[in-house]
């Protein structure tokens, strides 16, 4: 074995044993270490966001907002007027939800949210967006044929129900307020929170099930 081969073999051996991260993981490490070093962003800020959105913030927050709107008329009015302000009651503001619009379903109207450009989403009230929300298929098709897309989610709407599609932007995100199901009179806010699904707050689900 030549010394060159030995060197190559040694290199290969080390590569196998160091668990070299993937190419994108290395690119991210490069960006992160440089941005922190140059003071563009604090390491703590990155770590806190990751921990929050990986482990804690989920659609339950939005469900709490919806349940309050169902039980408190004054809150409902404030939510529909300025959702960005109203969610401050819960401390849910921030992270792309400063400008939030709540849109309410009625017996004759169904609201559906998309971001045709990229993946704008009200993270601070719904957590991370589902993969399908970010998919090219959903983004491209919802505006053109919302009924067909909803049917794929198992939601077939009669022609009498009008569908309004809201295209999110960097500056304005949406939260759908589903209709309160019949048979939930007298329920507490906590109990109501449990029946509000994430998909209902995006608009790919409509009739909430009473559990």
């Amino acid at each position: 074995m030549s010394s060159h081969d030995a060197k190559k073999l040694g290199q290969l051996h080390r590569d196998l044993h160091t668990h070299m991260p993937s190419d994108p993981a290395l690119r991210v490490k490069a960006l992160e270490s440089l941005a922190v070093e140059k003071g563009l962003v604090a390491q703590d800020t990155i770590d806190t966001w990751v921990e929050m959105y990986r482990d804690r913030v989920g659609p339950m927050r939005g469900a709490q907002v919806v349940a309050r709107a169902w039980t408190d008329d004054a809150f409902r009015t404030r939510l529909l007027n300025d959702a960005g302000q109203a969610i401050k009651d819960f401390g849910f503001e921030g992270h792309a939800s400063e400008h939030l619009k709540a849109v309410e379903n009625t017996p004759g109207t169904h609201n559906l949210v998309v971001c045709t450009l990229c993946s704008c989403y009200p993270f601070s009230v719904l957590g991370m967006s589902p993969a399908w929300y970010r998919s090219a298929a959903y983004r491209a098709r919802v505006v053109k044929d919302p009924r067909a897309v909803l049917a794929e989610f198992g939601l077939t709407l009669p022609d009498t129900v009008k569908i309004r599609v809201w295209d999110s932007t960097a500056e304005l995100r949406y939260l759908v307020v589903p209709e309160r199901p019949a048979g939930t009179q007298g329920w507490s806010e906590d109990r109501l929170t449990e029946i509000v699904t994430r998909d209902a707050m995006i608009g790919t689900d409509r009739d909430l099930k009473i559990t």
Binding site: A25, E32, I46, V50, P59, P130, V149
Partner: peptide, 26 residues
Amino acid sequence: MQPPDDPLAPPSGVFAEPWQATVLAM
């Protein structure tokens, strides 16, 4: 583009790989 089974499940496995979370965090 299929909806998940339990849309209110705790957000476990939100990111397939840690670097994906770091990109959005940054």
